Amino acid sequence: MSSRDIAVIGTGMHPWGKWGRNFVEYGLAAAREALADAGLSWRDVQYVAGADTIRNGYPGFIAGATFAQALGWSGAQVSSCYAACASGAQAIANARAQILAGLCDVALVVGADAAPKGFFAPVGGDRPDDPDWLRFRLLGATNPMYFALAARRRMALYGSTVEDFAHVKVKNSRHGLANPNARYRKQVAVEEVLESPVVASPLRLLDICATSDGGAALVLTSAEFARSRGLHPVRIAGLSTRTPAFPKTVIDLPDFATDSAMTVDPGERTFRESLAHDAFTQAGVAPSDVSLAEVYDLSTALELDWMEDIGLCAKGEAESLLRAGETTIGGRIPVNPSGGLASFGEAIPAQAIAQICELTRQLQGRSEGRQVEDATVGIAVNQGLFGHGSATVVVR
């Protein structure tokens, strides 16, 4: 392990679904499973990093303390953070910083959500300094419409078709069949996707992920702690949670709330490309080294964009890889072998953590029924509202 690596010695999840219970219950189940997987007790944990949920009242805003209380006050250090869909990755980053600074050896990262039915509504009232709130109001671009704009952009640039998008859903539904934590475990056909209701053209209902309840947790340790226990663990070798560099932001759509005095030259890379580049550089690996990827498939079209943004193929080539079977399990570079958000739905603070659970288990050879053979390097990427994003590289 390098001096910047940390070890993943335990993973845990609560299955995704619509269970109608408190989010704390989901996080507690995931945390206990992760501790058991690590062979540790709650008393061994020195630091708890909670990923916040903003739709579950005050306990959701202080998730780290909420989960620490549920496990039993032990005197552990604690933090809570929110970064929309990148919340889990930022919680991992908090724990990583504590470990690398020598302030703790064992950290528990937990995220869980109890999501409302339907598409997420904005939270927090009027927010005229929030570019996403302005997007809702000035463009009328709710999240599904935002995804649709990106899909239309892809169609215009590369000739993508609605059938291409449907094939993403088909692939991910097939992967999700073998994942016991997935909410949707049913094979979907191209025709079913194309016959589902239009939400925001060209995207249909089955092109867009649902909202879900669920939880995920990780036990992270220093390299020294892992060695002291005779472990040869999977390692987090790179992690980036940078912001966009205006004016080249998420998908080059307007950012209404940016001070032009802060305009920076972002170089050749977009926001998502920069996230992946940072993580790869930290890990000392290249996109060509990647064995599998967990990418942010809020929409089917978005998965294709992410494949190119993280360097798995050149611009405009994602559809070719998909149709050739290269992104399915057994192909050259499986994408979303977990089933992705297409099979899980969104449990916002848990999903980036769940991605690392998947990468860890894949690299350990523990993903029965959906195992990627000889996996050595994985990358997980997320993008959240208000400029949040993350890329995490895991190696063995």
Score class of each variant (00 low, 15 high):
L302R: 07
A318G: 12
E319V: 11
V335F: 04
G311C: 00
T281W: 09
T328W: 14
T281R: 12
P287T: 03
A324V: 12
E326M: 15
V295A: 03
S288K: 06
Y296L: 05
L321C: 13
D305G: 14
S320T: 15
L321Y: 12
I333Y: 02
C313V: 04
G316H: 04
T300D: 08
V335T: 07
S288Y: 04
D297A: 10
V290I: 06
G331F: 09
E319M: 11
P334H: 08
D309M: 01
I310P: 02
G331W: 10
F280S: 01
A283M: 05
L298R: 05
F280W: 06
S291F: 02
L322H: 10
E319H: 09
S299V: 01
W306H: 07
S338D: 06
D289F: 00
T281F: 12
L304V: 10
V335K: 06
L302D: 04
G325E: 14
L292V: 03
E317R: 09
G284R: 13
T327H: 10
K315T: 13
G316Y: 02
E308K: 05
T327P: 07
L304C: 11
V290Y: 00
R323Y: 15
V295W: 03
A318V: 10
E326W: 14
N336F: 04
G330S: 08
V285Q: 04
A301D: 00
K315G: 12
G331S: 11
G311Q: 01
I310F: 01
A301Y: 00
A286R: 15
A324F: 12
E319S: 11
I329N: 07
V285K: 06
M307N: 04
R323M: 15
G325W: 12
G316F: 04
A301G: 04
V285T: 10
M307G: 03
A283I: 03
G325A: 15
A318K: 12
E303Q: 09
G325L: 15
D309W: 00
E319A: 11
E317Q: 12
E319C: 11
L322P: 10
S338Q: 09
V285G: 02
T281P: 11
G311F: 00
D297M: 11
R332F: 13
S288D: 11
T300Q: 06
L322R: 08
A324R: 13
A314F: 12
E317P: 10
L302Q: 07
P334S: 07
V335D: 07
G316I: 02
K315P: 15
R332A: 13
L292F: 03
I310S: 02
G316A: 03
E294Y: 00
L298D: 08
I310Q: 01
L292S: 04
S291Y: 01
Y296F: 06
E319Q: 12
C313H: 00
I329M: 02
L322N: 10
N336Y: 06
G331L: 11
A324W: 13
R323H: 15
Y296A: 04
E303I: 07
L312G: 01
S288W: 07
T281E: 13
G311K: 00
R323L: 14
